[in-house]
């Protein structure tokens, strides 16, 4: 348990620093930044305390906003995704939602893809809605959400393969 928490804490710190100082400066095609810190929410054990995850999501988003001079988009988006995660798990894994490391092993590929896609898409949608916060720029919101989701999805899928080898 202690080991798991330490691992989680290290992962948490590493992802925040990676996101704030490296990935926020990628600017692929001028505007695309992948949001890899979602990895923490995706790989968080399904049977761990969801209330704790909400708090962690809030703190993580808050720190990211502080480090990247954001208004609060990461804070609200990660808070929301931490809150919505149990429902997304239920929706995408169905009967297998009690598999504790479902994202890494023990579930079918299509379920994992659906879960990952939903997590990324919902997070990014909320993020850009908060950042633009204007009904007139709804087309820009969807454009950014769409392209950034593809980019983040690919990078997250690659990162997850590292997890898989480590846990195997």
């Amino acid at each position: 348990m202690f080991q798991t928490n330490t691992k989680s804490f290290l992962q948490f710190t590493f992802l925040i620093l990676l996101q704030a100082f490296l990935l926020n400066n990628v600017n692929l095609f001028g505007f695309l930044n992948p949001y890899i810190y979602l990895l923490f929410f995706i790989t968080y054990r399904f049977d761990n305390n969801p209330t704790l995850l909400i708090l962690i999501g809030f703190v993580m988003g808050f720190l990211l906003d502080l480090l990247s001079q954001g208004a609060g988009g990461h804070m609200i988006a990660s808070l929301a995704i931490a809150f919505l995660r149990p429902y997304i798990i239920q929706f995408s894994f169905g009967v297998n939602s009690d598999v504790s490391m479902g994202m890494v092993r023990g579930t079918s590929l299509s379920n994992r893809l659906l879960y990952l896609a939903m997590m990324v898409f919902i997070h990014h949608l909320i993020l850009f809605i908060v950042v633009y916060f204007n009904l007139k720029s709804i087309s820009v919101i969807f454009k950014y959400t769409f392209f950034t989701t593809i980019f983040s999805f690919i990078l997250l899928w690659i990162s997850l393969s590292f997890f898989k080898t480590r846990y195997d």
Binding site: I54, F58, M75, I76
Partner: peptide, 21 residues
């Protein structure tokens, strides 16, 4: 508790957003 925690934190986040931007 999850919902209320979420809503409370969301409220705090909105306050922070209001302050920061």
């Amino acid at each position: 508790k999850n919902t209320s925690l979420f809503l409370g934190l969301l409220f705090i986040s909105l306050l922070i957003v209001n302050q920061r931007s």
